[in-house]
Computed example of a mutant assay.
Amino acid sequence: MTAASSTTESAAPVTLRVIPRRRPYLWFIYALLAVIAAAALYSAAVNERFGWAVVGQYLFSGAILKGLLTTIELTVISMVLGIVLGVVLAIMRTSSSGILSTVARLYVWFFRGTPLLVQILFWFNLAALYPQLGLGVPGHELLFSFNANQIISPFTAAILALSLHEAAYMAEIVRAGVIGVDRCQRQAALALGMRPARVLRRIVLPQAMRTIIPPTGNQTISMLKTSSLVSVIALSDLLYTAQSIYGINYRVVPLLMVASIWYLVVVSLLSVGQGHLERRFGRGSL
C-alpha cells in the first residue's frame, strides 16, 4: 500500500448510524391513554341516559339547522366587522397623533373591560335610554328619526355587541403584528418616496399577517362559541334552539349533545381553514 492510497483512505468520510434514544416508558403512557379513551367512549356509548336515539332524531332537524345557520351568520358578520374596525383602531393606536392614539386606547380599555354579556343586554335595551334614534343639529328638531325598538332587533343587538367587543381584541392583535415588523423596512420605503398608506398596505401588513393569522383564527373559533351568549336575548341561535326544544320534551342532555356536536363540526372546519391560511402566509419563513 502506498502513502497516497493510505492518505486517501484516512480522509474518507465515516458514516455514522444515528440510533434514536429509546423511551420505553412512552409506550406505557400511550397504552394508558388509549385504555382511558376507549373506556370513556364505551361508557358514553352504552349509557342510555345520553339518549343517542334522540340525538340522531334532532341532529339534522330543521329547527337545529336553522339555529346553526344563525350562529354561523353571527360569527361571520361579527368577525368581519370586528376585523375591519380592529385594523382601523390598530392604525390609530400606532399613529403619531396623540388624539387618535388616545381614542383607540379608550375604546380598547372600555370594551375589553366590560363583560360581553353586559354589552349584549345593553344594546338589546338601548330603547330604554333612547326611544328615538336620529340625526340632527343639537337644540333643533331631528332631520329624521327612527323607533329604536324597530331598529335594535335581537339580531342587530347581537351583531353590535359581538363586533364592537371583538374589535377591541383585534386591535391589539393587529397592533402586535404591525409593531413586530422591522421599523427599518418602513423607513426605507418612505425614503424611496412611498406614501405611508402604501407602505402599510404593501410592506407592513403582508409581513404582519404571519403574526396576525394564528390569534385571529383563535378569535374566530372563540367567537363561534361566544355567540351562544345571545340566547339571553331570545335570539334563535344553535344553543337557544336546543334549549327551546328540551324545554318542551325535557330531554336536556341529548339536545345539549346535539348542539355540542355541531359546534365541534364547525370548529373543526375553522381549524382546517386556519391551518391553510397559516401555511399560505408562512411561506418563506424559517
Rank of each mutant, 00 (worst) to 15 (best):
F60A: 09
L81A: 08
S95V: 10
F110L: 14
I77L: 05
K66N: 11
L126Q: 04
R112E: 02
F111T: 09
A63W: 00
W123A: 06
Y130T: 11
T102F: 12
V84K: 01
L117M: 12
L74Q: 08
L74G: 14
L81P: 04
G62V: 14
Y30D: 06
V54G: 11
V55R: 00
P115G: 07
A90K: 03
L69P: 02
L85G: 10
W52Y: 05
L89W: 03
L133G: 08
Q132S: 13
P115W: 05
L59G: 05
L126E: 03
I99S: 07
F110Q: 13
T114L: 07
Q132P: 03
L81K: 01
I36H: 06
L33D: 13
G62Y: 01
S97G: 10
V35L: 09
A104C: 11
G62A: 14
L69M: 15
T102D: 11
I83Q: 12
G113W: 00
Y42N: 15
V54S: 11
G98C: 10
A63Y: 06
G51S: 04
L106D: 09
Q57P: 10
Y107D: 10
F122T: 12
G86S: 04
S43E: 05
T71D: 03
L65H: 02
Q57M: 12
W52M: 02
T70Y: 07
W109R: 07
A40L: 12
A53Y: 09
G67R: 00
Y30Q: 12
S78Q: 01
L41W: 14
Q119L: 03
T94K: 09
A34D: 05
W123T: 07
G134M: 02
G113S: 08
A63R: 13
F122C: 09
L116A: 05
L121H: 01
L121I: 08
Y107Q: 06
I99Y: 15
Q132W: 14
T70S: 08
L100M: 12
I36G: 06
A104E: 06
S101Y: 03
G134T: 03
A127P: 01
G134L: 14
A40G: 12
L74T: 15
F111A: 06
T94C: 11
A37T: 08
S95G: 09
R93V: 04
F110D: 06
S101R: 04
Y107A: 07
G51P: 05
F122Q: 00
A53T: 14
R112L: 06
N125E: 06
L85Q: 02
T102H: 06
V46M: 07
L89A: 08
G113D: 04
F60M: 11
S95R: 00
M79K: 00
Y30R: 03
L32G: 13
A44W: 00
Y42A: 13
Q132E: 09
G56Q: 10
L116Y: 00
K66H: 11
R112P: 04
Q119C: 08
V88Q: 05
V88H: 04
W52D: 02
N47P: 09
A128T: 08
G113K: 02
L59K: 00
F122Y: 15
G62I: 12
Q119H: 08
S78G: 07
L106T: 15
Y30I: 15
S43D: 02
E48R: 15
I91T: 13
W52G: 12
L33Q: 03
E48V: 15
L41Y: 06
L41H: 02
L65Y: 06
F124E: 01
S61T: 10
W52E: 02
A44S: 12
L65M: 05
V54D: 12
R49C: 04
G67S: 04
